[in-house]
Nucleic acid binder design. Structure first.
Lengths: 209, 209
DNA sequence: AGTTGTATGTTGCAATTGCAACATTTTGAA
DNA sequence: TTCAAAATGTTGCAATTGCAACATACAACT
């Protein structure tokens, strides 16, 4: 089960879901989970895989966020604030939906499972902030090379390895870095030619340090 | 008092601060509040004004975040994850420091003020996420012009006005957008010449729409 | 195996940007 | 007020990037 339910017994989880009037929905591959955001919703990917995608007026699509199993999304949690966003299930996906306002407006009570849930939610939001900070750290680099190197650094520090398996396609990686795909490809080649990295497809080996 | 203490009486605030073993520290203008982050800390600016600043190996400094009164910062909340960050008081500043781990590891209890505090903290983190999403939305635009326009859009939507007062200097604004200051200046001039905006110093008027 | 669609690699070129250098203006302190 | 420091405005130029166009490789499906 999701981290949100850490330290909450199965019995109490049921009570909690009832208290918060949650619902569970199923989406088939390549269907839209949400386009316009109705209200303040927290969704949790219980099974499957989805992406938050923005399409601008030029038709350029950008992956705002990857939603793996146990990822959360929602107006106050992820990047749905902007208009042209939609969440698309990339596999068959099972989603738990919670009304955020119902969580917050819940009167003070002594249900330990409720208080534990809030605490878990807090931990989740701080983790999300960490991820956003990483992304911002990368995006503020001014050259493609430095964006790549910053991504590599963060990745290798986090995973404790010099071998990187990109969690998405190179095309999506370019979107994540907010650079042109072909320009990124060119820069990866430069890094290879200069002996900083090896790379084949999504597997990149760091040779420096 | 800070939003974190909403719905907590003064009496209970005192108990809370004791329970969490918080401390209050004072910093003079232009002194460093934190450089290397020791442990998992949440700080709250009670009075004054500070900035999180990163200085890279080239000596380029970037404002990662503005910390106004009531802003929070900390390893799990703002951008201190990366190495070269430090927080600098730009005015005399009064800071409340809380050990984040102490908050989370607090045993389940029925202190209503504690549970309310966690709830308030949760609200704060979701607000922070909103801000980060805005920044990411801006940073992913590929031209300076589009970054400016996106900033203007978000600002004017949020404040419901076409007159923008930048909350920081133009130099710092360029850092926020992660672009070269002179290039930004040039682009602002272009927007003016083309009749999209008026601007004088930090005051920008949107003429489109 | 063949076919179709998508991902990836490559390259020329024009546009944008960063950088440096300098002028001008504003700010803040003495 | 006066002076120094910081912020802002401006411009040329070289470097980087986005864009377009195309070739190749890979994957999924029949």
């Amino acid at each position: 089960m999701n981290k949100l339910f850490n330290n909450i017994s199965v019995k109490e989880q049921a009570k909690l879901l009832k208290l918060l009037e949650t619902s569970i929905l199923y989406y088939k591959k390549d269907t839209t989970i949400l386009s316009a955001v109705q209200g303040n919703i927290i969704g949790i990917i219980l099974e499957g895989y989805a992406q938050i995608i923005r399409t601008d007026y030029n038709g350029n699509r950008t992956i705002i966020e990857e939603l793996e199993e146990n990822s959360a999304f929602g107006s106050s949690i992820s990047s749905l604030s902007s208009d042209e966003c939609e969440i698309i299930a990339k596999e068959n996906t099972k989603v738990l939906l919670i009304d955020y306002d119902r969580i917050i407006q819940q009167e003070a009570n002594n249900y330990s499972y409720y208080n534990q849930f809030i605490k878990n939610l807090l931990e989740m939001t701080t983790n999300i902030i960490d991820d956003k900070n990483d992304r911002i750290e990368i995006l503020t680099k001014k050259t493609i090379r430095n964006k790549l190197l910053e991504y590599f650094n963060i990745y290798s520090k986090k995973h404790g390895t010099n071998i990187i398996y990109l969690p998405f396609s190179l095309t999506d990686f370019a979107d994540y870095l907010a650079v042109d795909r072909s320009a990124m490809s060119r820069e990866l080649k430069n890094l290879k030619d200069e002996g900083f990295i090896n790379s084949k497809g999504r597997r990149i080996t760091l040779l420096y340090r």
